[in-house]
Design a protein around this nucleic acid. Structure first.
Lengths: 139, 139
DNA sequence: TATTGTTATACTCTATAACTATA
DNA sequence: TATAGTTATAGAGTATAACAATA
């Protein structure tokens, strides 16, 4: 029986798709993209950074997040201020409004996760989340 | 503590990436693409099907698997024979060689999975796999 | 008219390379 | 010259639509 299961990636892939699909309405409700939410999260957890460092932190290329930063700035969720010490860099920071949006989105996403995980017995769910976190930290 | 973790999708995404990266060398070693392996797996588990049904089964579009089928047929891993009863459809079947390749690839992939999961305590690993399977079956 | 397999087209992501302005 | 941010270009992957053969 234990060898009859599908490959791990073959199971995780549709699972992740379902998870993302469940998060889409939450993101749409608050008018942020997935990358926008990732940026808000990174900025909220560690306030100031250069754009390149931010990109690195969320696993994207520096050129790829620019559109996202433009949108977030336009919406007043982040600020980009020139660094007086080195006028090449733009100091990034999340605004109070950005923090509120991030918090609201996270709450909605956690609720969606809970619904998706609801079929698991509580003990298994705990272990599952702990295992995912451990694997995530290791890679 | 339980609220301090990253979002589930934010953890699963890089995890899946790492898993896929670990599988790449195995696939390359046996000269099959990821989709090719998915096709072999689907055909091995339920032998005969139309291309459209096969595509549906592996979560792809019927137009998207054609190149994959061409490659597999070229390599002698599957056969496409016209259905005498309905000459529009091509009956699909996996060849003995295809079965061997599928089996060898799966063995390599399972080994890669084991290495990736090795950091987890045995009990947690069991529960993790059981939970993933249950969630996968539910979606 | 509907369906199977196929080809062609377009659209989304992403990766890479140029360009500017500063240093 | 090297680096931060930006823009432009090209590639992979995917989704959709059109097409020919058959039912």
């Amino acid at each position: 029986m234990s060898d009859e299961r599908p490959d791990l990636a073959a199971m995780l892939h549709p699972l992740l798709r379902a998870l993302i699909a469940a998060e889409m309405p939450v993101l749409a409700e608050h008018d942020v993209s997935m990358w926008g939410y990732a940026v808000l999260t990174a900025l909220d957890d560690t306030p100031v950074r250069t754009q390149a460092a931010l990109a690195e932190a969320i696993g994207a290329d520096k050129s790829r997040i620019i559109g996202t930063l433009d949108e977030l700035q336009e919406a007043g969720l982040i600020e980009r201020t020139p660094d007086p010490n080195d006028r090449r860099v733009r100091l990034l920071s999340i605004t109070p409004k950005g923090r509120r949006v991030r918090s609201a989105v996270r709450k909605g996403i956690r609720a969606a996760e809970d619904r998706l995980l609801a079929t698991l017995p509580a003990a298994d769910r705990e272990t599952f989340l702990r295992a995912v976190r451990e694997l995530y930290d290791a890679h």
